[in-house]
C-alpha cells in the first residue's frame, strides 16, 4: 500500500489535470455572487470563494497550469542541461572548463530570484517565468549530468567503442545518452517538485498567471483576503494540493534514484 501511494498520487494528479473539463463539477470561472463563501457542502465539496466560484473545480482546472509549468521547465532544462553536460564531458579541455565555469556562475544565481526578476522586467504571465526558471534549472541539472557523463565517458566500454572507430555522435547518442537517461529522469523528477514550488511562489507574488486564471499559486494568494474574512478554504486547499503533489513527485524521484543507483553495473 505505502509503496504505491506516491506513484498513485502522481498518476491521479496528472489524470485529473488531463481530464479537468470532464471531472470538474462546475465551470471554474462561473460566478455566483449570491453563493460566495459557501461552506463545505455536498454541492460544493470544498466550498466557494469570494465570487462564489466552486473551489474544487478551480483546484482541478488549476492542476493543468500548475503541472504544465514545472513539466515544461524540467523538459527544457533537462534537454539543454544534458546536451551541455554531455558535450562538455565529451570534448573536455578548454570547452569543458568554459562550460563548467559558466555553470558555476549561473549556479550562483538563486533560480527563483532570477525568475522573479525576469518576470518583473519582461512582464508576468505563463511563458516568461517558465522560460526564466528553465534557464535557472539548466545549471542544476547540467552539473550533476556533467559529473556522471565524465565518469561514464571514461569507462572502458566507451573507449572500446572509440577504438572500434565509431563516431562521437554514434557513441553519444547510442550509448552515453541511454545510459545516462535514468539519472536524467531522476534529476527531472526531483526538479519537478522544486519547479512547482518556485512557479507557485511566482504566481503567489503576482508575477505569474493573472486572475481570473485558476492556478494553485495564484489561488493561495487570492485566498488571502478571505482568510481575514474567516474563510481560509481557498488558500489551504491550494497549498495542500501543492504540498501533496510535490511530496508525491519527490518520493517517486527518490525511489527511482535508489533503483537506478543499483543499475550501474
Amino acid at each position: 500500500m505505502r509503496r504505491w501511494l506516491a506513484p498513485a498520487v502522481c498518476v491521479l494528479v496528472v489524470l485529473v489535470a488531463l481530464l479537468a473539463p470532464w471531472v470538474a463539477p462546475y465551470d471554474p470561472d462561473a460566478l455566483d455572487p449570491l453563493n460566495a463563501y459557501a461552506p463545505v457542502t455536498a454541492r460544493h465539496p470544498l466550498g466557494t470563494d469570494d465570487l462564489g466560484r466552486d473551489l474544487l473545480s478551480r483546484l482541478i482546472h488549476g492542476a493543468r497550469t500548475s503541472l504544465a509549468g514545472p513539466l515544461i521547465v524540467v523538459l527544457a532544462a533537462g534537454a539543454v542541461g544534458a546536451t551541455v553536460a554531455i558535450s562538455a564531458a565529451w570534448f573536455g579541455g578548454w570547452f569543458d572548463a568554459l562550460v563548467s565555469r559558466a555553470l558555476d556562475v549561473l549556479f550562483a544565481f538563486p533560480g527563483l530570484v532570477l525568475a522573479i526578476t525576469v518576470a518583473a522586467l519582461f512582464g508576468s504571465g505563463f511563458v516568461t517565468p517558465v522560460v526564466a526558471l528553465s534557464c535557472a534549472f539548466v545549471p542544476v541539472i547540467a552539473r550533476v549530468m556533467r559529473a556522471a557523463a565524465l565518469r561514464e565517458r571514461n569507462l572502458p566500454y566507451i573507449e572500446a567503442l572509440r577504438v572500434q572507430g565509431f563516431s562521437a555522435w554514434h557513441i553519444c547518442l547510442r550509448h552515453l545518452v541511454p545510459n545516462l537517461a535514468p539519472l536524467l529522469m531522476v534529476q527531472a523528477a526531483i526538479g519537478f517538485g522544486y519547479a512547482m514550488i518556485d512557479l507557485a511562489s511566482i504566481s503567489f507574488l503576482g508575477l505569474g498567471l493573472q486572475p481570473p486564471a485558476a492556478d494553485w499559486g495564484l489561488m493561495i494568494a487570492n485566498g488571502q483576503p478571505s482568510i481575514l474574512a474567516g474563510f481560509p478554504q481557498q488558500s489551504i486547499a491550494a497549498a495542500v494540493a501543492v504540498v501533496i503533489t510535490v511530496v508525491a513527485f519527490t518520493a517517486v524521484a527518490e525511489r527511482l534514484a535508489t533503483r537506478f543507483s543499483g543499475d550501474v553495473r
Binding site: L155, P156, Y157, A160, Q164, P178, N179, D263, R265
Partner: peptide
C-alpha cells in the same frame, strides 16, 4: 587494431545484450 581492457565489468555497455554488442560492431 582493436583493444581488450582489464576490467571485464565495465568494458561492455550494461544495456546491450551480447548479440546486440556484436551486431553493432
Amino acid at each position: 587494431v582493436q583493444m581488450v581492457f582489464q576490467d571485464p565489468y565495465q568494458s561492455l555497455d550494461r544495456r546491450q545484450t551480447v548479440r546486440g554488442c556484436l551486431a553493432e560492431v
